[in-house]
Simulated assay, not measured.
Amino acid sequence: MTSPRPRPTWTQAVSALFVAAARVIVAWCVVFAIRAVLPTAPVQAFLTAYPGESALPAFTAPGIPAFVSWTHFLNAFFLVLIVRSGLRFRFEKRSGGLWTSRRVKRRRMSLALWGHLAVDVLWLANGVVFVVLLFVSGHWARIVPTSWDVIPNALSAALQYASLDWPTHNGWVHYNALQQLFYFAIVFLAAPLAALTGWRLSAFWPAAWRWLPERTAKALHWPTMLFFVGFTIVHVGLVLATGALRNLNHMYGGQDAVNWTGFAVFAGTLVLMAFGWYAMRRDDWIARVARLTGDVRLLGR
């Protein structure tokens, strides 16, 4: 049995409210400061020269290919399971079950960790398929910068977002420069870093490989997960706030139109994600799959 968390005192609660209020006030001050400088001549000249989007190569066709839609859903679905199982493994005090390898008897882990690693493998396989199809289709130029003007254009887009005068664009044709940089970072930087550090922290890392210290991997793995979560929150928020029906149709409806098709598919995916979140809590459900790869022993709580 784990001891219940102590309830915060009134002083702590009031202090937390004051800190939250102060952060909101500072954020609004930043917004108003940016809005004050946007109309000035130098800033307007900068925004005119760099409107927030870089030109795409001529071979980049408009539209969202079908493989982007279904790999996008699988990526989000597996990411939800990864976060849920990772949080469970990080904070659970007592495991509900153990998995033991049939080939390497000394290799054992909790069912929560086994579930985390199993979903990691599916997430990586989906990512490999996405990247291969990305380059085969020529769609890679949508998220890989091809010109250095992506930097000032990204700054321009950031200023527009920060002023709450959000840049208008057509995601069916192109992403703005800030989106492009973040999508590139997610696919080609954050995802490999999460995979590498997670592998280092698992029981499958070769003991002879000492070039990545475990302490370094721990220091990087958790912040990388927080980056994914933070990106997802902002990403979904902007999708819903900048023309939800059209944006959802781009990704889930396969069309550049304003109707409820994409929203309906999106709502269905949320149901699947909620089910997956619940499933990662059930050791008996995880055990059914884990027994395909090793011996499982459920433990009483």
Score class of each variant (00 low, 15 high):
Glu53Pro: 03
Ser69Tyr: 06
Val68His: 09
Leu47Asn: 02
Leu98Cys: 06
Ala55Met: 05
Pro57Asp: 03
Tyr50Phe: 13
Arg94Met: 11
Gly86His: 05
Leu79Phe: 15
Lys93His: 12
Val80Pro: 01
Ala36Glu: 02
Pro62Arg: 00
Ala66Gln: 12
Phe59His: 14
Ala33His: 03
Pro42Cys: 00
Arg90Asp: 00
Phe73Lys: 05
Pro57Thr: 06
Val37His: 04
Val43Ser: 00
Ala41Ile: 06
Phe91Ala: 08
Ala36Asn: 04
Leu79Thr: 14
Phe32Arg: 15
Leu87Trp: 13
Arg84Pro: 04
Arg94Tyr: 10
Ala45Met: 09
Pro51Gly: 00
Thr60Asn: 08
Phe67Tyr: 13
Lys93Met: 12
Phe91Lys: 07
Pro65Gln: 10
Phe89Asn: 15
Leu47Met: 09
Leu38Cys: 00
Val43Glu: 01
Leu47Ser: 04
Arg90Thr: 06
Leu87Lys: 06
Leu56Arg: 06
Ala61Val: 13
Phe59Tyr: 14
Thr48Gly: 08
Phe32Gln: 12
Leu81Ile: 09
Ala58Lys: 09
Gly63Tyr: 02
Ala49Leu: 08
Ala76Ser: 12
Ala61Ser: 11
Arg88Lys: 14
Ser95Arg: 13
Leu38Ile: 13
Glu92Lys: 07
Leu47Cys: 04
Leu98Thr: 11
Gly63Met: 03
Arg90Gln: 09
Ser69His: 05
Ile64Ala: 04
Lys93Tyr: 08
Leu38Met: 11
Lys93Arg: 15
Leu38Lys: 02
Gln44Thr: 05
Val83Leu: 12
Ala41Gln: 08
Val30Glu: 02
Thr48Val: 05
Leu56Ala: 09
Leu38Ser: 01
Ser95Leu: 07
Gly86Val: 06
Phe32Ser: 07
Val80Trp: 09
Pro57Arg: 07
Ala58Asp: 11
Thr48Asp: 09
Val43Phe: 01
